[in-house]
């Protein structure tokens, strides 16, 4: 088991009234691709943030085991070094910091964790150029400031590009498809598909079936009010597309009332 989330409860830090995750369970084996869908406000982004170790949220109950370790004992940078990667819903701009410096620092931090030697400027450049082509990024990507002046699509692609560079064990895509046109979405999906392997797992958080049509997840979960209320295979995507969340939500409430 790569990721084992048990009865996870989380709230906005220092605000008990804002309980968001209310006993969430999720098990992911190495090599699996899981989609998480759900209406607005269900807690999808909170789940991504809590897994990545964002301090805005406080875990009040439950556990997260990752690759045999208790993830809740580890801070965000070490989670990243151990192979947890989050592609952001809104990738952040860092003015004046080149992608080259940012990514080289990042890649070397992770290589250090793996006991690999640091890449110097030339090796890094070579390594990065391959992936730039793979992701169809602009050639001058490394010279530009991190995400500054990037279009929405470019920012998302830049995150997937980083994912390709860092070769994580668990990739979490937090609504990476939001705001992408069809071509950009294909590029993102191709990027994800090219990274799929027996050792690497994915959590794809999304509102829409379209990205999933390209990625074809092994499992689909419906997240509602801080819990996973239904789990199925790829066919669940189309069921949701046709009927929306209402039926599933009503069925869940009916069961809860029994």
């Amino acid at each position: 088991m790569l990721l084992d989330v048990q009865n996870l409860k989380a709230q906005v830090a220092e605000d008990e009234s804002k309980q968001i995750l209310k006993g969430l369970n999720l098990q992911i084996k190495a090599g699996e691709v899981h989609a998480i869908m759900g209406p607005n406000g269900a807690g999808k982004s909170t789940l991504s943030s809590v897994l990545a170790g964002r301090e805005d949220y406080e875990v009040t109950e439950g556990s997260i085991q990752f690759d045999g370790e208790d993830l809740l004992d580890i801070d965000a940078e070490d989670r990243a070094r151990k192979g947890v990667f989050l592609a952001f819903q809104y990738p952040v701009e860092i003015p004046g910091v080149s992608n080259k410096l940012f990514l080289q620092t990042s890649v070397n931090a992770i290589r250090e964790e793996r006991g690999q030697p640091a890449l110097d400027m030339f090796d890094f450049d070579e390594f990065a150029q391959e992936k730039i082509e793979l992701m169809g990024m602009r050639k001058d990507l490394l010279e530009r400031s991190v995400n500054v002046g990037f279009s929405g699509g470019e920012k998302k692609r830049n995150d997937i590009f980083q994912m390709a560079l860092l070769e994580p064990k668990l990739c979490i895509l937090d609504e990476t498809d939001s705001g992408l046109d069809i071509d950009a979405m294909k590029v993102v999906a191709n990027g994800v598909n090219s990274l799929r392997s027996d050792e690497r797992s994915f959590i794809v958080v999304t509102h829409y079936q379209r990205l999933l049509d390209y990625i074809k997840p092994d499992f689909v979960h419906v997240l509602y009010d801080g819990q996973i209320i239904k789990t199925g295979g790829f066919e669940l995507v189309h069921e949701l597309e046709e009927n929306g969340y209402d039926q599933i939500v009503q069925a869940f409430h009916a069961q809860a009332n029994i």
Binding site: D75, E77, A80, I94, T105, S106
Partner: peptide
Amino acid sequence: QLFYCKQRGIS
């Protein structure tokens, strides 16, 4: 910004 960097393994 800080979280973005930390999520990429940067101290």
